[in-house]
Write a protein that binds this DNA or RNA. Structure first.
Lengths: 205, 205
DNA sequence: GCTAGATTTGACCAACTGGTCAAACTCACG
DNA sequence: CGTGAGTTTGACCAGTTGGTCAAATCTAGC
């Protein structure tokens, strides 16, 4: 009697369609932003009619937030796995490397977040100021510890983190510009070495 | 008899209103993107009625492109003034510094471009692949020259430029995130020193 | 203060948007 | 099969949007 799929365990069809919707939504939202995307567009991309899509998610907003919250965790994974007991330089370099790989392999996810944050994070502010803030507070302490013991050079830990994010995500977020300017050359050929060199020189004690 | 202000020299009122519209449009477009902004919103912010605004610009699209093309030049100025005959390290450092200042002083402009490029630059692709491309080609040659003579260390010139753009514009484009994570501290207090250090270490021969 | 042109506006329109709903269809399962 | 729940859809709605237009108002220069 409800107008939404039950809370019971999802049927085969539900699983398939929910996944198709989220995949389509990622495509559409990441290239047009929230307001720039239409429910029809997403439904079309998912191979469903609009009312059919709204049978699975109660609103456009619900699709968006489902997508965001489902993705944020994966997005922060690389930072989460920065190991306080590992070798500082190698830990940081491998973090940079993983972030860069994510820019290459999941550019839509990167652009989704970029879009949202550039516009003031109207639907993500909470997640930023709780989850992300907590994680960053924790990891900046780790970085400071490494600087205290002289294992890496002292720099501002927040700015260090920002630099890693901006340098790596730039290749996904500004992909069009990067490709226009580099022509045939694949940006991801030289980027890993460039970034490794940069951080080695910046942080080598 | 026309329905638009003549091509003749603009009246006092035209000057005032055109400027107010572009200022309002910058505000609105930079925070909501093109499709996310409405003509009513811009008109309201400019203190005009919607039909009145459309008396000065023929369409929403026209406002947007007028804004973009009027701003692109200013935006590229710092790079343009990179002096091939100056001291390489100081030239680059002062370029970084100017870009950072622009992020602080003109964050809306930065976000306007960011929004546009993240979404695939649908209305800016031409400007990118002509004007920007030409300028970048010219300046990467300058950078390569400096590397050839050993005045700065050899790195990939394109990636070097990208790094400067992403590191500096990050503070404008991702402002919300930066401020959430840094709390009370003003990001622009420590950023100049952080970036100067970074580029000195990266490029010192 | 008159007037021609410049400016402003309320009313309006067609297209689009997010969302609803009842009716129809399909599927799993006994 | 048959049947009830799960799924899909065409038709529809109200609000918003970009844009038009004729009429009203204002302004500058004579």
């Amino acid at each position: 009697m409800r107008d939404m799929p039950q809370d019971r365990r999802p049927t085969r069809i539900q699983k398939k369609n929910r996944a198709a919707i989220l995949e389509a939504a990622l495509d559409v939202f990441s290239t047009h932003g929230f307001r720039g995307s239409t429910v029809d567009q997403i439904a079309g991309a998912a191979g469903l009619s609009k009312p059919n899509l709204l049978y699975y998610f109660p609103s456009k907003e619900a699709i968006f937030t489902a997508l965001l919250s489902g993705l944020l965790d994966t997005w922060l994974d690389p930072l989460r796995s920065l190991n306080p007991d590992g070798d500082p330089m190698e830990e940081i370099l491998s973090y940079v490397k993983r972030k860069l790989q994510m820019s290459r392999d999941f550019p839509r996810e990167s652009r989704l977040f970029a879009n949202e944050i550039v516009q003031g994070a109207p639907r993500m502010f909470d997640a930023l100021s709780t989850d992300l803030k907590a994680l960053v507070d924790e990891k900046t302490k780790v970085l400071e510890g490494w600087m205290d013991t002289g294992q890496i050079k002292r720099t501002h830990p927040h700015h260090l983190l920002f630099s890693i994010w901006s340098l790596t995500q730039h290749y996904a977020d500004f992909d069009v510009q990067v490709r226009v300017l580099m022509g045939e050359e694949d940006p991801f050929d030289a980027a890993p070495e460039f970034l490794e060199t940069l951080y080695r020189r910046l942080l080598k004690p």
